[in-house]
């Protein structure tokens, strides 16, 4: 009798648990479908990066927790981790400005501390971006050799994952290699981007390829000028209103140490933002690209003046000459 009661209780507990588990599983499927089909496209149309950061940073662990019960939502995870990585990168750039201001103020202790804070944040960014890349690999296989068969939606996630891979390597270098992101994923990502049509994807595949050629000019086909290729990709990006390729051009020009080239790329970006509105469907990506360009401009301004780009000042520089205006003779004007 006692044994049968105990068995009944155990069975009840088991049933309850299984019941809960199946509710969670169903919820997980729902959450994935909702996030991928509605939440992510919605966020892409919005213009508030702070909210985008808050969402990706808070919702990613919650969504990924469902993978304990269902499958791993790799496409969704790729974009969430990429976005969360960009948030950490933006904070790292802020610390870079703190370093410059402290150095200028001769507060060397604070300058050193800001550099350490910056590196920690770059490591955080690298960690997230690398996870984004790994989810891409889980979904489509390792990029760089063959192109997977993809529809347009899949191509979009493919591109985000490749950008995430490239950024992971760069962030890890800036964070002093703490995460240990394998460095060959940069080249794999660039080759993988060649599976995509440059026109359809706002010049990004062209920009990624040209970026490598600027560093290894001998690898470029004969007669191809990598910097012109980058500028052409930027033009495609401007026409499409998704200016990620322009951010690539600015970051690569920044690395090259050629300040005139860098200023020109920033000016063209600023002009493009003024003349062509953001693509409504991918507004968030356009704004993220704009913030990356602004981050480089802020660093230049801070190095030169101690404070960041003035409001509305993107595309201008502290030492720009205002066009001279020839003064008229006041006596002539006021005379009879």
């Amino acid at each position: 009798m006692y044994l049968s009661i105990r068995t009944a209780i155990a069975a009840l507990i088991l049933m309850t648990m299984t019941g809960c588990s199946s509710i969670y599983t169903t919820t997980g499927w729902f959450a994935y479908d909702f996030a991928e089909d509605y939440a992510m496209p919605y966020v892409m149309k919005t213009d508030d990066t702070e909210m985008g950061c808050a969402m990706s940073e808070s919702m990613t662990p919650m969504l990924m927790a469902f993978s304990e019960l269902t499958w791993s939502p790799d496409r969704l995870a790729t974009s969430m981790y990429m976005q969360a990585g960009a948030c950490a990168e933006a904070r790292a750039n802020e610390e870079g400005l703190s370093y410059l201001r402290a150095y200028k103020a001769q507060n060397i202790g604070e300058a050193k501390d800001a550099r350490i804070r910056q590196k920690r944040l770059f490591s955080l960014a690298a960690n997230r971006q690398y996870k984004g890349y790994k989810h891409l690999v889980a979904e489509f296989g390792e990029p760089g050799e063959t192109c997977p068969d993809m529809d347009e939606e899949e191509e979009f996630f493919w591109m985000l994952g490749l950008i995430s891979g490239l950024q992971a390597v760069m962030s890890d270098v800036r964070g002093q290699g703490e995460v240990g992101v394998p460095k060959d994923i940069a080249m794999k990502s660039v080759r993988g981007s060649q599976c995509l049509d440059a026109q359809r994807w706002w010049g990004m595949p062209k920009a990624m390829q040209a970026a490598v050629w600027t560093m290894m000019p001998d690898n470029a086909p004969d007669g191809v000028d990598p910097w012109q290729e980058l500028a052409d990709a930027s033009e495609l990006a401007g026409d499409a209103g998704v200016r990620l390729a322009q951010a690539v051009e600015v970051v690569i020009a920044d690395g090259s140490g050629n300040e005139e080239r860098l200023r020109d790329a920033i000016r063209r970006h600023a002009q493009s933002v003024k003349t062509t509105p953001a693509n409504a469907q991918y507004r968030m990506l356009d704004i993220v690209a704009n913030q990356q360009v602004l981050a480089v401009s802020d660093r230049l301004w801070t190095e030169a003046t101690g404070s960041r780009t003035p409001i509305g000042g993107l595309g201008t520089f502290w030492d720009d000459q205002s066009p001279a205006e020839e003064a008229l003779d006041i006596d002539d004007l006021l005379g009879d």
Partner: peptide
């Protein structure tokens, strides 16, 4: 630095700058 201002050597020199100040 093969990666220019984005590379690890250039980053090391940013740290070195704070030491050189002293």
């Amino acid at each position: 630095d093969p990666l220019g201002a984005n590379g690890s050597l250039f980053n090391t020199m940013k740290d070195y700058r704070t030491v050189a100040f002293d």
